[in-house]
Amino acid sequence: MISSKILIIDDEPDFSALLKANLDETGEFIVQDINDSALAVRVAKKFKPDLCIIDVIMPGMDGGDVVARFSKEPELKDIPVIMLTALVEENPDSSVGETHTCGLPFLSKTSDFQTILACIRKHLREDVLT
């Protein structure tokens, strides 16, 4: 089984490290995390992730800017993205707790790891199907 590559872009190094550790623990993913959003495009181009988990509120370039920049990059524009942020609450109506806004899935940062994992798997699966 080929591991999916996940890029975490979050200015909180403690959170990104712990999320990465949990994802690593599953053995399903190859995970890289960066805490400087300015490096996001460059790292993504090099890392070539299958999915990006992006925080929204970040200094300098915020999550929205990162997505905008990705959309301009042909090699990055089709990479599925999950916006993981403290701005939203877990959506009880969604099986994976996500809320869709502006065509992007938003997931609460306080969602438990299993919910986040389910959401990641769902979007990877959808990406494969498409």
């Binding site: 909180e12 949990n22 403290a86 701005l87 609460s108 940062k109 306080t110």
Partner: peptide, 21 residues
Amino acid sequence: VAHEVKNPLAMIGMGIELLSK
């Protein structure tokens, strides 16, 4: 407060998840 508390809560959540294993 909610926004500021959510981040550390998320971290603790992730930490507990990791430790539980």
